[in-house]
Design a protein around this nucleic acid. Sequence first.
DNA 1: GAATATCCTTGACCGAGATCAAGGTGCCGG
DNA 2: CCGGCACCTTGATCTCGGTCAAGGATATTC
Lengths: 245, 245
Amino acid sequence: MASASYRRRQCFAGPLLAEPEWRVLDRSEIDWLNAIVMCRAYAPGQCIFHEGDACQGLYIICEGLVALRKHDGAGASVLIRLAETGDILGYRSLLAEEPYQTTAEVLKPSRVGFVATTIVHELIARKPDLAFAFLRRVCHDLGEAQERFHLTVTQSLRARVAYFLLLMKEDYGTETPDGSLLIELPISRRDMAEMIGVRSESLSRTIRQMTDDGILAFSGHRAWIGNTDRLLDELGPHVERHPMT
Amino acid sequence: MASASYRRRQCFAGPLLAEPEWRVLDRSEIDWLNAIVMCRAYAPGQCIFHEGDACQGLYIICEGLVALRKHDGAGASVLIRLAETGDILGYRSLLAEEPYQTTAEVLKPSRVGFVATTIVHELIARKPDLAFAFLRRVCHDLGEAQERFHLTVTQSLRARVAYFLLLMKEDYGTETPDGSLLIELPISRRDMAEMIGVRSESLSRTIRQMTDDGILAFSGHRAWIGNTDRLLDELGPHVERHPMT
DNA sequence: GAATATCCTTGACCGAGATCAAGGTGCCGG
DNA sequence: CCGGCACCTTGATCTCGGTCAAGGATATTC
């Protein structure tokens, strides 16, 4: 429950500075940000912001894991994006000058910094490269969102599971000694279903089928994939084989 | 078949200058662009660029209608976006520095201008406001794409048709003398189905049902909606009632 | 204006995935 | 060790939308 007292109050430090957005800043600007930016701890289940809220600034995940969800009134929701250490939240709303369209729910104990809108604008005005960095990121995200729509509409659930695992491989996959692939999923089965856009019961069934077919093995949040090619075969014809270029 | 010879060779003129991106430019920059930018005519069916192509610059629709599609190998495709007079094509790829993810297919005879990547970068460097204009646009688009995903996953076909018509109302809707709403859809039934992410047969059936229920009337590309509230009722609970803010 | 291709609608059928309902299974606090 | 709880899996059933196939309607061409 975020029991630790964080000695380091500086958000902008360590590997976080390697993020494309902050890399364009120089030392003095980093120091300035560290002096201004508030950083606080969140426990799992807490929300950083809610769908419909007015956007006041940017959030930076110094450490942790956060889910961006969209809810509909009937209780169903969809997981739009996972954000982990180093990721930024709220830039879409800030730069579109619109209210939040998603709710940011903390999944693992997190430290999150807040940068007010005015600061962001000031930084961008001072560093044109920052605008480019954001542009590149948002455009890339847009491409992913379109790809996701395409996939959801044209591909079977099974193909989408395969695709999802290949995506997660990028961030959470490791090679095991015996040459197979291990993916340590950071999320529950339900959240996984929400990312794929499917009911969790259906996801369970699909995973079982794929297990029976010897394509993968699951244990809790751990997935083993013996042969990546067999996963790729699940994708429909001519679907981009290298998601997340 | 684009038989007309276009006397005006200048792309950047008239209402097109009111677009948020070009509004930030001053007279000399507009003149400069008009001197450089190539403008050519396309006939329906022609493609401006193809999925997978490297991006060389930006396209501006001086006049016409263009569809951005994603294809999968099996012949199925999805219509990602409609672009009409004044709209810009290819900015996602250009700014993300990625190949095109969609194919731009001309639907109605169009005149389209081309601005090379280097020119765009030069302009942005000169006018930081241009970067902001693009940022706002892309972020807004991203929001729409996420909303669309959410909708597709959680709502029934019928609700999605209702939502689609409310979207189209913004651009193509007019009030008729008798107080009902007339929407002149610029696209075929098939394209409409591709935008909603559904087979055209299913769309036909859904339209028929809604017609039988007295919610709307269709004739060719013309849709009448007697009572907008009844369309809104079709949307699931708590779905954003004002799409395209 | 007949020929022809394309688009749209309708019908019959089917199947993937949703829904409803009931167990498992693991986890935490007592 | 046991009870409670959240998460996951499985089963049975249903239904929405996809698929296949056949007609109509509408353009387009000659």
